[in-house]
Design a protein around this nucleic acid. Structure first.
Lengths: 352, 352
DNA sequence: ACGGCATCTGCAAACATATACTCATAGCCG
DNA sequence: CGGCTATGAGTATATGTTTGCAGATGCCGT
């Protein structure tokens, strides 16, 4: 691998001159610049980013920790982050935590060893995951939490307007005449899930409906657990009366949504026929498939992009002090078939 | 940020000893090891991977270039690669090329500056993209092409058994009695697409059916182009006769599949009612949605995993010489509704 | 007491680069 | 034509780590 020294040798200039041509921080005469550039081409020289980082103490890299890249939401977030980062000359190091506290610890350590200049974190559930954050901040590495907001900690966050978004989805269901609407949440230790639950409550109240604890189903981010929990709640209920089965179901995230749909199938129920359904997050981007799911969709790309902008701002400021930044981005309600607002035709591809 | 020197100071040992504790390459007494580890904890020390890389000339990083992380297939590949890499202590740097030759050039340069020890490449279409490969190999960086096989170049490759896989999908359609089966391919400059086409031809021949050029529709990886091309081919054909509309359609990849489905919808056709449909690649993981699509599914995870193993092997061997390795992994046929093998019930969630 | 061994220290030389600094050269004006 | 000023070239040092080596220390058995 060619070095700056070889380039200097071939171009007949000093190492410093090559460096100046590369960085542009010091003017170099056209004659020498051309010779240097020619040497760079001839040698297929690529500046050693490692040595540069060591010298300048800038890795030009930021890390992003997501639960699982294969969940469609996160690649969009990562891509948003990557675009914002690239615009400032930064690269992205993306790693999975598997929503596992121990693994999150590992990857955060890895990122710190790699000397990333900032970290974007979709925090794993559990207090242990949150406990890892302060040390990082203390060490001077800016960290922005995105998508999920950890409780009990002062930290920059970027996510969707959970309360309003959930209320929007639930209001859609109440406006369709539903009076018994169940909500299927993830762990309520996460502020977002709480906020979404609050949005649900607000929407019910606004519609003059009571909030029943028996219709609030708290679950986890484990698909199998969600499925069986949902199934359990749906079966063994009468069709009417005080303990009647809900006529609509709202899921607060993509995982519980998928679990809910699987649960419905396991209980031999269809949507929207047997129960109206709406959810946070898109399950499949394509409107080609049926039943199309009424969703409150998050601006995934924008979340990643905005979080990165904030992070870069903190990096530039070289300080984690200053007021905490909390960005809430608006979601969008996409009304489709599963909520029963549109009637669905025969199976197969149809024109909506 | 604490350094190895500070750790040594706090632990009351020499720098060398700390290094030895960290690397494990030289035995250290238990007493000192404990003191060192305590100091590391107290100082929240994280070894400077950058300095280590510079000294050892090993970045312990491999790069992976994919067209677009938001296409569901690729995160699985990346995750497979990540697991294999992690098992050997390597990290993954994943970047998008946007299926764009110029951008691919940029990201490859970036990876070389980052001094990745090897590169996994899903090559962008076009000869310019392929032309970038030899320089990298010459510079001593192993490179494995995965998913897509570039033509006219000797290189390690890992992908699916394209021919057999396509033949399997098409045979499924012939076995259902279809005699006019169209194929919608991506750019035939890619060997895989050619091979899939060959599989199609072989399956037709085996079923005693003629290969008609008018039923071979070559397209691109651009969704809109595929959609309009498909629509164009489907409309303006009589229902019978020599130029009759095909009764079945096979798409050779996820992009053309999506384009095909959109095209069908635009032409006001449904599947499997108006035309049977099968494809390479899964469009949505969940079987919950209708119409469920009969697919030849690729072992995405395994492709990433295997490619990384080969790459690590080349890295270890410190040489790109030796015989070229070509791994072909088997695909799996998932028969669902769109091919018409199962009859589909009413829309909505049903038990299959 | 002493050799041998295991363990540890301290030092120095890299690794490839950036940068502040010094030095050289050329142009220019008086 | 001499000295001054720009401007550009060259040089030395530092970054955090690994690694090898020479020497120091302490402990054990003889």
């Amino acid at each position: 691998m060619s070095t700056i020294k070889k380039v200097a040798g071939l171009a007949g200039v000093s190492i410093g001159t090559v460096s100046h041509v590369l960085s542009g921080s010091v003017p170099v005469s056209d004659r020498l610049r051309r010779k240097v550039l020619a040497a760079i081409r001839d040698l297929d020289y690529h500046p050693n980013h490692i040595a540069r980082s060591l010298k300048t103490n800038k890795s030009l890299t930021i890390g992003i920790v997501v639960p699982d890249m294969t969940i469609p939401f996160f690649p969009h977030v990562i891509q948003g982050a990557e675009e914002a980062a690239r615009a400032s000359g930064y690269s992205i190091l993306a790693v999975n935590s598997g929503d596992n506290s121990a693994r999150q610890q590992e990857v955060l350590s890895l990122l710190r060893s790699q000397r990333v200049e900032g970290i974007l974190l979709v925090v794993a559930p559990g207090p242990a995951s949150i406990a890892q954050i302060p040390r990082i901040l203390e060490s001077g590495i800016p960290l922005v939490c995105l998508d999920r907001v950890p409780g009990g900690i002062e930290i920059d966050t970027v996510c969707v307007e959970d309360r309003q978004a959930a209320a929007m989805g639930v209001s859609h269901l109440t406006s369709l005449g539903h009076r018994r609407i169940a909500i299927l949440t993830g762990p309520l230790t996460l502020k977002n899930e709480q906020e979404r639950l609050n949005g649900y409550k607000a929407a019910l109240e606004e519609a003059g409906l009571p909030v029943e604890n028996s219709l609030i189903w708290e679950s986890t981010f484990n698909l199998d657990e969600v499925t069986s929990l949902c199934c359990q709640h749906l079966s063994g209920r009468s069709d009417s009366g005080a303990n009647a089965r809900p006529t609509a179901l709202f899921a607060t995230n993509g995982v519980t949504a998928l679990g809910a749909l699987r649960g419905l199938r396991a209980c031999n129920m269809t949507t929207p026929e047997d129960i109206a359904f709406a959810t946070f997050d898109e399950l499949t981007v394509e409107d080609i498939f049926r039943p199309s799911i009424t969703s409150v969709v998050q601006p995934a790309h924008a979340i990643g992009h905005k979080a990165t902008e904030i992070l870069l701002q903190r990096i530039e400021a070289r300080s984690n002090s200053g007021p905490r930044i909390e960005v809430r981005l608006p979601a969008q309600l996409k009304i489709r078939e599963s909520s029963g607002a549109q009637r669905t035709g025969a199976a197969g591809l149809t024109i909506p």
